[in-house]
Design a protein around this nucleic acid. Structure first.
Lengths: 243, 243
DNA sequence: CGCGTTTTTGAAGCCCCTCAAGTGTAGTGG
DNA sequence: CCACTACACTTGAGGGGCTTCAAAAACGCG
């Protein structure tokens, strides 16, 4: 069974071969979990980052709104993800982070994070590793936006999200929760929601995957991977694999 | 005057309020500079990263080649840039890095980097900061690819590269060296070189900027910034500003 | 049940791609 | 000094993928 803190513990342990004590101290340093409604900003562009966020339940995203009102989502944050571990090095956020669904999150005061990181090198390495993987995901998005058409792009994103959910034990069979509207997907993929809809219909009619009722079901993962040209090596999941 | 190592020293100092001694020790740990021809890989997808690269002269890029032969460039590396400081945490590269022009580079053995980083916290912070800024650049690219048309995209990239060149003191007046072919620009922007050409003509005819003879000249930086919707806050250049 | 949100579908148009050909331009060797 | 080659740049014509605009259907939640 997956309890609230589980996804985070599972993820951070997979990243760094950490001793149980290291993780426990991090968990103990965190503030009590808080519920946040959907469509709220956890932090806004221009703010000075001051805490470490960990998402225990729900989905959030990094995004930026352009002058013309268009929104571009640059990353999805799912249960177990944490963000801005060392963003305190920078003066202000160059983007915002907002919830997409109701979320359960914990924050860790920056001072405590820094103390912990200094005292436990294994934790430093785990955070570094997570940071590098996040960067790999950003690069994969650039490849998608630059060189894949809408069908391939949707397929690739679905596989990324499915793989990440699997890595924190949140998939069953070939399906997982995926509470993203077609508007949100469009904002992430650089497409309109109208076209996302048409692509999803195509994938559904071909019996490859279904997205509905806030749930992703992959029916033919081979075909989906072939469409996307998906190779999960960029998620660097070599240790602590979850079946 | 800009000597080979200058751009790097200038950049690393701007990042971390470092003592001169810290920088000197890093420079002293580096191997002798090496010349690399154009169109050579410094490191390939699948390789285990083993050294820290610093580019003293010339341009390189992070890229990935898709199964259909298309190339997507995900980042440009210019004089002063370093890469993969802590990528040793990961098992293998998920992309390649190749030179675009002849380059002068130095490498620092990973062991020495790690020893230096451990002994000088200021250096750790400087590398963190550089890493976070690189991430911001990746996010800005995603915004461009997702929500800007070809004209805006070209304008934004030109301003990014100009700003970064300015930050290491490699601009004069409103121009700088920019030895990128239109094919390379297309590979970076997710466009064809044909369309890049048309966009550059448009910008030239409107008297906004000129790109030719491996040189970028910005004639109307206000107009260019307006087209691009450019805001350089994501480059986080708050200290050590170069005029 | 009623209302807002999300999904779905159609029609028309534009931005950028594809394909193709022609024009520089730099370097090389005779 | 001039062929010759390779590469980069330039321009045109036609086509397709995705957008825009619009409206209806389905869903979810009080």
């Amino acid at each position: 069974m997956v309890t609230p803190a589980n996804a985070f513990v599972r993820k951070i342990k997979a990243y760094g071969l950490l001793a149980d004590g290291d993780v426990r101290r991090l968990v103990e340093a965190s503030d009590p979990p808080r519920k946040i409604a959907a469509h709220r900003d956890l932090i806004r562009e221009g703010d000075k980052p001051s805490v470490l966020f960990v998402i225990l339940e729900g989905w959030a995203c990094r995004y930026k709104v352009l002058p013309d009102g268009n929104r571009q989502i640059m990353a999805f944050l799912m249960p177990g993800d944490f963000c801005d571990v060392h963003a305190g090095e920078l003066e202000e956020m160059d983007h915002s982070i907002g919830t997409l669904t109701p979320c359960l999150i914990v924050t860790v005061p920056r001072r405590d994070v820094e103390a912990l990181v200094i005292s436990t090198p294994a934790l430093t390495r785990a955070f570094w590793r997570a940071q590098l993987i996040d960067e790999g995901v950003l690069r994969a998005w650039i490849v998608s936006m630059g060189r894949r058409n809408a069908l391939e792009r949707v397929a690739h994103l679905m596989l990324e999200l499915y793989a990440r959910m699997r890595n924190v034990g949140l998939t069953t069979d070939h399906s997982c929760e995926l509470p993203l509207t077609q508007v949100v997907l469009g904002d992430a993929l650089g497409l309109t929601s109208v076209h996302v809809n048409r692509v999803l219909r195509e994938l559904r009619q071909q019996g490859i995957m279904e997205l509905g009722a806030r749930t992703l079901r992959i029916l033919d993962i081979i075909a989906l991977g072939k469409i996307a040209g998906f190779d999960d090596n960029y998620l660097h999941r070599k240790i602590g694999k979850v079946a």
